[in-house]
Nucleic acid binder design. Structure first.
Lengths: 343, 343
DNA sequence: CTGAAAGCGCTTACAG
DNA sequence: CTGAAAGCGCTTACAG
């Protein structure tokens, strides 16, 4: 019966069992009960489908149902291990729920991000998970307006009602800086990433809050940097080391930044933590193997990915758009050897 | 004219211009010439499509044409920075050519890999790029038999004719070990990954070749390990350090392995390179910031991804299946401070 | 130079 | 309890 080499279709199964495609479709959709299809028939359909290894043509189904069982994911840089592990957990959770992910990488570029979102929409994904660059949100707001499910990841817009899942950077940053202060540091610098991202804003806010709570005056020269990458961390650290007074401790707002800072510190032949202390956001596999094992702030990457998918699929299945605020997961402070105890 | 909120279709454009959908389809497919469609009409179609921001429904097109403009990618572990950067370049190159990628992560598990390949085939991807776990190749051979384009990445099967792109690990490994020997090392161990992967086999072969060429007898106890992960690197290094004679240098066949080895070395309070020398496969952002900047073998990750996509799309467009052997790109030896010069 | 119509493989409202 | 038929939005062989 099989139509030569091409794939088995509903029709083939119908012919095989001697029943209409309607019935086959219903049985295979698990609606045998609902349509009170005779058990005999249902069983025959099921076994024939199995025997012929029938797989529905998803394009045909998508055309009819307007559901592709696909979710679009745009990360800002998959090369950043932080996003890599999030992507991994997104894919795993999606697969568990029978969704596939089509992945785009915006390379931290807003135009690419907009292009990717557009591209994914044209592919009729059922929903989107995006970790936006942050400079611009119109294209994301439009998605919501059109009731296409969307969940923001890691970076969100506090003034908008787009649902998100992120880690509580504010509290984590505050804790880290408080720890530095408790260790006797007063000249604490902060090497930041993209200033327009909420994660950066929150971390800066936590930093300021900790200073304020401890009666330390903010030195604006101690907030420096404008990108989450290694190069910016390097440059910023070089500038900080040339300031006077120079900081005795720095908080690096991303892991690549901390690596850049390390490079600048090494170039000056300074030692961590003797000459300068450092704490970095993002725990990595290598954090404990660096010249000085690094004190870090760990974000719950795989949880974030998993929760984002669950939130999204809930939206997809809910039909009506829920403007669910957002979810903040706690961070984890990992104390190692990169902070000197001054007092 | 726009049909309420739903998307613009060919029909809408046809109605707008006052022409048949056939004509619209032809113009938009760039076949105006071929069908000698009057310039006037063509222009009107084009401008109407643009005005209404018409985007073809890809599911409909896929149903008719059996082309989804999607390529399935299965990596064995996106969390491994090596694969992350490959994935990034695959996505970028695919996007340039108007393909989207649906990504799966097999987690280095053969059953998951088979499941993912199956899942991607059911989604009618136009082709597949996979970095196989390597234990098994039937599911991949089947793909080829059915003329579905496939390119293997990083790991391939030398006895099969499935096209691949990988780096020349054999030569790189041989060079690295020759370098160690030139530095005066004779007791050189090798911490390997999954023994059934070709990359591992090639690296081991290169290692043996270098020893042989230099008249050094192979000590089988010096080849150890069975997984590319950090844990295996750690355990293997511990075992090596307890052997007698212990090696004076080790070649780590992956970056995570080298981190594991570092952990074991640190636990024993040994110093690199004074007490033990090490060279690792895979250059990473952090390689130069480790306690001792690491001498590494860099693979051309983004080139691999890019070439893989190009090879695949060539196959897709060629129709007839070309059993193109495979492409090996050269590696890059990066000399730093993790090797002691003995003589 | 252009169009009517069939068909890709599904799902489902309608009818019995 | 089951089926014929319409339709999702495209493309293209056939006809003029």
């Amino acid at each position: 019966m099989a139509k030569s080499s091409s794939r088995i279709t509903l029709k083939d199964i119908a012919r095989d069992v001697g029943v209409s495609t309607t019935t086959v479709s219903r049985v295979l959709a698990g609606k045998a009960r609902k349509y009170r299809i005779c058990d005999q028939t249902a069983k025959k359909v099921l076994s024939s489908a199995k025997k012929h290894n029938f797989k529905p043509n998803l394009s045909a189904r998508a055309l009819k149902l307007r559901k592709t069982y696909t979710i679009g994911v745009v990360v800002s840089d998959i090369t950043n291990p932080f996003f890599a592990s999030i992507a991994q957990s997104i894919e795993l959770e999606a697969r568990k729920q029978d969704y596939a992910i089509v992945l785009c990488d915006s390379g931290e570029d807003i135009f690419t991000e907009i292009e990717c979102v557009e591209l994914l929409r044209n592919r009729d994904v059922d929903g989107l998970i995006v970790s936006p660059v942050g400079e611009e949100s119109n294209h994301l707001e439009n998605i919501c307006k059109e009731k296409l499910p969307l969940v923001l990841l890691d970076r969100y817009f506090p003034d908008l009602t787009i649902p998100y899942v992120a880690c509580d950077s504010y509290t984590a940053s505050q804790e880290a800086v408080s720890y530095l202060i408790k260790c006797g540091h007063h000249k604490i610098a902060c090497i930041q990433g993209r200033v327009e991202t909420i994660s950066n804003k929150n971390r800066i806010a936590g930093y300021k809050k900790a200073l304020r709570s401890n009666g330390i005056k903010l030195n604006n020269n101690f907030i420096i940097g404008d990108d989450f990458g290694e190069a910016s961390g390097y440059l910023s650290m070089k500038l900080l080391l040339n300031q006077s007074p120079a900081p005795t401790a720095v908080l690096a707002l991303s892991n690549p930044i901390s690596l850049g800072a390390l490079r600048a510190i090494r170039e000056k032949d300074l030692k961590i933590p003797d000459d300068i202390s450092i704490i970095a956001f993002d725990e990595q596999l290598y954090s404990k193997y660096l010249a000085t094992p690094m004190t870090t702030i760990e974000q719950k990457n795989s949880e974030m990915g998993q929760v984002a998918v669950q939130l999204l699929i809930k939206q997809i299945k809910a039909k009506r758009y829920s403007s669910n605020k957002g979810i903040l997961l706690p961070c984890n402070f990992i104390q190692r050897d990169s902070v000197k105890i001054l007092k």
